[in-house]
Amino acid sequence: MPARDKNGHLIPVQQLHPGDHAFVSYGNDEIRWDVITAFVRLGLARGEKVMVLPCPAVPEEEVLARIDFPSRSTASARERGQLVLSSMRAVIRPDAEFTAARQLGRLHAETDRATAEGYTGLRAFIDMGWVAALGTDLAAVAHRETHADGLFSGRPYTEICAYDRRRFDRAMVAAMEGAHPHALLERLGSLRSVRGAEDELCFIGEADGANRAAFMRSLEIALARTAPDRRLTVDLTRLHFLSVGCAGALLALAHGAAGHDLVEVRCGPGHRRLLRRLGADAMPRLAMREVIRPC
């Protein structure tokens, strides 16, 4: 059964926008690079300045090699100052100990500096490995994470806080996930299904050929669950990618759902065009509602 997610909390990294404060966790040295590389490259493509504060335990050479792979397009961004590798020690300098006020003030100033330099905003990836490296009290970290609205509200700043599940206990990770307005899928190319408001079925991530079986299974379960109500709402707005195969499977299952009076599909303009090309308009029990996610 899909987990419940009534407030659009879980999203793919590709749907982050200025003003977003997001959580991600990882428990594997390879997986950690999925989100960071996508976050960096999307920021550069959007004309933002990008700061990366990697785990202090990871050598700088490895960080650069990872974010440069599979090409060295990020090297030129570093040369012109659009991509900056930093650390929490550098952010709070000249202070030696972390305080939320010092960190927030510096990031606020760096955002203003980025826009003054002609960038569209600032985005920062902060691996929370710095907490142990600086010997910072976890209560101070939690307070910062839950009292940072002024850094984001109405401002062109985007931040990911990455927690290594091997470094933080389960309760801390769960609390920090809940404290952030958004949580991110930790792997690119993955697909999650969750139950949203009013029992709708929400897909998050990438519905491609590799995930087609899971996509269909979630739809079949949701159709069975909602048979007594004779209606199902399917939310595609948090999909970064929808393949032709998965779109066709959705239409085929909706067409065969004789026990339903209505299958409503909430989607963005691109996915709506794809569904229409596959014949969605000719299906009487299928209704599409276009939703524009905020930029």
Rank of each mutant, 00 (worst) to 15 (best):
P228T: 11
G135I: 02
G135M: 02
R89W: 12
L242R: 06
A96W: 06
H147L: 05
R166V: 08
W33Q: 01
D169W: 05
D169N: 08
H21P: 00
K49F: 12
M216A: 15
T115Y: 05
V50Y: 11
N28H: 03
E30T: 00
L134Y: 10
L278A: 12
V141I: 13
D208N: 12
R155T: 13
G105Q: 12
R32K: 14
G245D: 06
L107K: 02
R123C: 06
G81V: 15
L44V: 09
G205V: 02
A75W: 01
F203C: 01
S86G: 13
L286V: 13
W33L: 06
L151W: 06
T146R: 10
P18D: 11
S153K: 14
R230I: 10
A132T: 02
R41K: 10
Y157P: 02
F125M: 02
D5Y: 00
R41V: 02
L219D: 04
M283W: 04
P70L: 07
P56M: 03
S73V: 04
R276N: 10
L104I: 15
A197S: 02
R66D: 05
L262K: 12
M128R: 03
S153L: 14
R167G: 03
G47I: 12
V141P: 03
G8Q: 09
G270I: 04
T37I: 04
H143N: 02
E206F: 03
G118V: 15
D95I: 07
V50L: 10
E177R: 09
E220F: 03
A227I: 14
L16Y: 01
A3C: 03
A162W: 06
R66L: 04
Y157R: 07
I221Q: 13
R276L: 15
W33G: 04
P56V: 09
A3M: 10
A133I: 04
Q15H: 11
M51R: 14
E62V: 14
T146S: 15
T146M: 06
T74S: 12
T120C: 14
M51T: 02
